[in-house]
Each structure stands twice: as C-alpha cells, then as structure tokens.
C-alpha cells in the first residue's frame, strides 16, 4: 500500500466517525464536534494530496488546507454561539426535544 492510500484511509475513517457522531448524538455540541472531525478529515486529504502530488512547490493543497482551517474556526465560533443562544431560549441542548420551528 502506498503512503498516500494509508492517509486517505485514515481520513475516510475519521470522516465516517465524525458523520456517525453528527447523526447519532443528542447533544448539539457533540453534533458540532462531529462536524469538526469531518472538516479535519477533509484537511488531511488536502495535505496528503499536496505532499504526494506532482507539484508540491506550488503550495496549492497547503493553501487550501490553511484557508479551510480558518473557515472551520469561524464556523465553530458561530455554531457554538448558536448553541448557547438556543440553550438560553429553550433551556436544553437536546436535539430530540427541539421539534418546534416557532419558539
């Protein structure tokens, strides 16, 4: 197995774990944790392809991963702010109890 295939398999496994977490947990914060894991798995793919691609000196994959990290940080801040806001409104972070569109 080539090194790139190993990294891709680890990223696929991490993505599946994050997806399972996002789809099965009740707590809204744990769903966000699952989404973070999926974003990180995608970043690992980008860096692995940059490393074993034909032109690593062009830095394309590296730049993609760095911008992806920045966007993920913004996403985490807004997502956790929304969870805190919902908790203040509904007094729960249990997603199974949030079944109304109207507050």
């Amino acid at each position: 197995m080539t090194p790139l295939a190993g990294f891709l398999l680890v990223a696929a496994l991490l993505f599946a774990i994050g997806l399972a977490g996002a789809l099965t947990r009740r707590n809204a914060i744990l769903v966000l944790i699952g989404i973070e894991l999926m974003l990180n798995a995608a970043n690992l793919n980008l860096i692995a392809f940059w490393r074993y691609g034909p032109h690593p000196e062009m830095l394309t994959g590296m730049m993609f991963a760095i911008f992806s990290i920045a966007v993920a940080a913004a996403e985490a801040a807004v997502g956790l702010g929304l969870v805190i806001s919902i908790h203040r409104h509904a007094h729960t972070t249990d997603l199974d109890q949030m079944n109304r569109m109207k507050g």
Partner: peptide, 27 residues
C-alpha cells in the same frame, strides 16, 4: 450550557441506527 450532565435517556438519539448505517455506508 450545563452540557456536562449526562441525560437520563441516553446520549444517542432515537434514530441512531439510521445514522450509523449511513456513516458505515459512506465509509
């Protein structure tokens, strides 16, 4: 959000089996 308290009715949602199947399929 006091999220550290473990809820009585489990930490996984009612549709956990469907989520697990989807994740396994994606992997």
């Amino acid at each position: 959000t006091k999220g550290s308290e473990t809820p009585k009715d489990g930490v996984f949602s009612k549709t956990w089996l469907a989520g697990l199947v989807v994740a396994a399929g994606v992997f």
